[in-house]
Design a binder for these strands. Sequence first.
DNA 1: CCTATCATGTAATCCGTTACATGATTAT
DNA 2: ATAATCATGTAACGGATTACATGATAGG
Lengths: 202, 202
Amino acid sequence: MSTERLTPTSYLVLGLLEREGPSTPYDLERQVAATLGNFWSFPHTLLYSEPPRLAGLGLLRETREQDGRRRRIFAITSAGHEALEAWLEQPAGVPTELRDLGLLQLFFSDLAPAAARLRLAEHQLAIHGRKLSTYEGDARLERREPTSGRGLRTVEHWRGETLPMGLLYERAAVEFWAGVADRALRSAEPDAALGSDEPQTA
Amino acid sequence: MSTERLTPTSYLVLGLLEREGPSTPYDLERQVAATLGNFWSFPHTLLYSEPPRLAGLGLLRETREQDGRRRRIFAITSAGHEALEAWLEQPAGVPTELRDLGLLQLFFSDLAPAAARLRLAEHQLAIHGRKLSTYEGDARLERREPTSGRGLRTVEHWRGETLPMGLLYERAAVEFWAGVADRALRSAEPDAALGSDEPQTA
DNA sequence: CCTATCATGTAATCCGTTACATGATTAT
DNA sequence: ATAATCATGTAACGGATTACATGATAGG
């Protein structure tokens, strides 16, 4: 057996294969892109390197297509199923972290010219606003006639259970960065201290 | 020169040294623990390995204490200052991600017994509730007489600018997980479908 | 047919983590 | 003094990212 540690990525692969059945790395990639990839992105190469590793641990079984493309197909084994379930039974104790580059830059924004903070805030506001729109669009989607049975369960579970946290988070982020931008603007205008809506000019 | 890439950790170190002046890795550790560590944790060894690397790039200057402990002291150079400012001028384009283990488990919670989901939700609710309390305590703190000038600026900037996002996020998380726990409870009770508060028993 | 993009994969590199270790300081 | 904890550091390891590459499929 090669190295034994199971990472979050490992469980992600196990979980997808459990739900979707035997899949190629590319199948997994498409599943992730539409759903979990919003919260947990990674390069596609991970989905080519991790499954073979899990196969080496006996948690997956690898087969090959016989026709032209000879793709690698991975399926979960009973050992894999047990590992996945054991992980789900034991809730993660690590405190969630907001590992956000924008927040890191904000944290140090007093070390750069004031204009930089305003730019940062507007940038982040735009990013989170876009993401919020996307989520709201996803949430509004009625289940139209399924274009394919493939991956439906994953998408529905995503939409029903996980996406709502994304909505809450993005709304909070938009509110936050709007406030930062607003304060940055005010502190740039000397008139701001008056706190009045009346134009002060002439 | 050794490897040239500057990571978020690099800027974290540069920023702290810019604000606090020459410091030992342990000094940095204490600054981070009380502030940014809430959003962006890492093992203390990073603060011993990253500064020498930055020194190799000319962004820091390293000196040694002469007395007993002979600690390594790092100070930012003008090249370091420029690198930091350049980074702050260029807002991060990467979309923030909610890389949360709890959400990952929730995403796969349909693959385990229903009890596991309830346990997960209650666990997460407790974690986020604790964190929220901590943040609220931090936010309420009046600036009492500074016990030491060291690090004050960092702490105040943290409290004023960055902590508010933590509050918003933790409130959202508490709301979210409370809802998940609630639904998990209801779906465990057959009576739930009636949607009434009256006890149905007998 | 030719070109562009999709789909699939390999290999090297490196940052961050884990494991280990020991000299100071403080408490009893 | 002695134990316990604080403070400081080194070294190896490995998963994730980056860079690279090429065979299918579709569009013009």
